[in-house]
Write a protein that binds this DNA or RNA. Structure first.
Length: 561
RNA sequence: UGGGCCGUCGCCAAGCGGUAAGGCACCGGGUUUUGAUCCCGGCAUUCGCAGGUUCGAAUCCUGCCGGCCCAGCCA
């Protein structure tokens, strides 16, 4: 990581840590953890949490564990586990220790018996619906379960039989005995264990017929790992009293503190695992790694550099307010990183044939092009220049729309990037009147030199027609047409998917691009940043994904009218 | 409606009783063989609103208003 990233912006959590350090809490230790459930792929929201947790460990010389919160076997699997590990590493982080909450199942069970012995937990026979009725509502207190006052002996016996697999799913649960009248619903005797007989857990197989719930598991896992600062998102604020209840009532080896921050909301996309799962399951995208997805796998395939994602997370900050970040902020981070790191190349996305009539047929000249305008260290390359070329259709207009237009027009001149100034002498059309070819002439004195006595204000890119390499290029755009899909309660969030989020074109690449390695990123000059797709490319036959366009003030001006 | 939390520029966000950082976006202007990059300049007399405390309030107090979260044997 660069020095620029070294100084992370402060935030309220770092202030808490600074204060704790000043007061000598935790013997000066700082220990965090990133606790994903392996039931889906990581997305940009997780990236924020990863940067926060691992970033704090890095900056304070502390530790950060990766811990899979795997207490719901029916929704989790090892593929997600592996994908998550890969995504964390790709973001540039490495964990101190790797754990599974399931590593603690034995100890978790033991703590549950402790709670029972202390009269602080009981086995409840109410079914799910009854339990809901007994729970009360947001404004009315709940009622005690009729099973609440069972003896310790009976509770212990019943719980052991739950563990032994004697009861069916849903027949009984273990609950904490707290307060059915609490205004905080999480404290109304929350479920600690439920029966999931027959489920095959990806780590523990069929060893357990009962599984612990999130709040219980998470708190104890944090304590067992000696986590000092347990960071989670705002929706768990109400759970903090329960988190602390476990710490107060269990003989755990540490007293972690929980702090909550606002989750990331990004315009023109969705960041909920449920919705992302549906996009994949319903075929709206081609998979978790579809380049339109805000998943880590998706943006990786799209070509976002990990440093750009880290920079973005740094810029959005960490607070308790629940905001909506503009896509422009992410795009800025991506462009900034790519501008500095991506070698330049030329590719024509919408080819229009150009014939330079006064350039010798069969002649192939190698013109030299810098790989980066500001970084000579990136070297240069030769590009074949020939009589017949392709330019982009959008770079020619028979009559200019206004005086600001500085591309090629009939009778006008333009600079071919890295090559000659040409003039368009004639337009060739087919039977239906479409322009199929431009006949041009060139000024042989303008290779690496400005023309004498006149100014040529436009520069366009090109590729040799005889040497260019045809390739599939995928132009990606925002996934949704509106900034906040799902915000309107009476409209299905899927209704605002952008049907043009993927447009595939057949482009012509300069020859040097043919052997570009999978994953490599380039700036196609005047177009945008592109990377070699890591799934569909074949040796010598790259497929390019457009990561993002270049900023385009001309398009902005044109749209303005 | 009970509880928890949040309101500082279009967006994100500093600010922690001494008189509104920064980034993004936007608007000019300059450089440029990418309408990119880069550079220079502009962009909150005011901090949700109303009172109060104070020599002094975005910061403290009170009351409103607006937004988010919670009634899984999900996490």
């Amino acid at each position: 990581m660069s020095n620029k990233e070294a100084a992370a912006a402060s935030n309220f959590i770092r202030q808490v840590i600074d204060e704790d350090l000043r007061n000598g809490r935790n013997d000066g230790r700082v220990a965090t953890r990133f606790p994903p459930e392996p039931n889906g792929y990581l997305h940009l929201g997780h990236a924020k949490s990863i940067c926060l947790n691992f970033g704090i460990a890095r900056d304070y010389g502390g530790t950060c564990n990766l811990r899979f919160d795997d207490t719901n076997p029916e929704k989790e699997n090892v593929d997600f586990v592996e994908a998550i590990k890969q995504d964390v590493r790709w973001l540039g982080f490495d964990w101190t220790d790797l754990f599974f909450a399931s590593d603690y199942f034995d100890r978790l069970y033991g703590f549950a018996e402790d709670l029972i012995r202390a009269g602080k937990a009981y086995v409840c026979d109410l079914d799910a619906e009854q339990m809901r009725e007994y729970r009360g509502t947001l404004t009315e207190a709940g009622r005690d379960s009729p099973y609440r006052e069972r003896s310790v002996e009976e509770n212990l016996d019943l719980f052991r039989r739950m563990r032994a697999g004697e009861f069916g799913n849903g027949e009984r649960v273990l609950r904490a005995k707290i307060d059915m009248a609490s205004p905080n619903i999480n404290l109304r005797d929350p479920t600690l264990y439920r029966i999931r007989r027959g489920a095959v857990h990806h780590q523990t197989g069929e060893a357990w017929p009962i599984y612990p719930m999130y709040d219980y598991t998470h708190t104890i896992s944090d304590a067992l790992e000696g986590i000092t600062h347990s960071l989670c998102t705002l929706e768990f604020e109400d759970h903090r009293p329960l988190y602390n209840w476990f710490l107060d009532n269990l003989d755990v080896p540490a007293q972690p503190r929980q702090y909550e921050f606002g989750r990331l909301n990004l315009e023109y996309t969705v960041l909920s695992k449920r919705k992302l799962t549906e996009l994949v399951a319903e075929g709206h995208v081609q998979g978790w790694d579809d380049p339109r997805m805000p998943t880590i796998a998706g943006i990786r395939r799209r070509g976002f550099p990990p440093a750009a994602v880290r920079d973005f997370c740094e810029r959005i900050g960490v607070t308790k307010s629940d905001g909506m970040v503009e896509m422009a902020l992410l795009e800025n981070s991506v462009r900034e990183e790519l501008d500095a790191s991506a070698p330049r190349a030329m590719a024509v996305l919408d080819p229009l044939r150009v014939v330079i009539d006064d350039y010798p047929e069969g002649r192939v000249e190698s013109v030299t092009a810098a790989n980066h305008p500001k970084d000579e260290g990136m070297g240069s390359r030769g590009i074949p220049f020939t009589r017949e070329l392709y330019i982009d259709r959008g770079d020619f207009m028979e009559v200019p729309p206004n005086s600001k237009f500085k591309r090629l027009v009939l009778g006008g001149e333009v600079r071919l990037r890295n090559a000659y100034v040409i003039r368009c002498d004639r337009v060739v059309r087919n039977e239906t009147g479409d322009i199929v070819e431009l006949r041009c002439s060139h000024d042989s004195a303008t290779l690496g030199a400005n023309p004498e006595g006149r100014k040529v204000k436009g520069v366009i890119h090109w590729v040799s027609a005889s040497h260019g390499v045809p390739a599939e290029v995928r132009l990606y755009d925002r996934l949704f047409n509106i900034p906040n899909p799902g915000a309107a309660k009476d409209r299905d969030w899927r209704a605002d998917l952008n049907p043009e989020s993927l447009v595939t074109v057949q482009a012509v690449l300069e020859p040097s691009l043919a052997e570009a390695p999978v994953g490599s990123r380039f700036q196609f000059e005047r177009e945008g940043y592109f990377c070699v797709d890591n799934v569909d490319s074949a040796p010598g036959r790259p497929v390019f994904n457009r990561t993002i366009t270049l900023r385009d003030t001309w398009a902005k001006l044109a749209a303005r009218g």
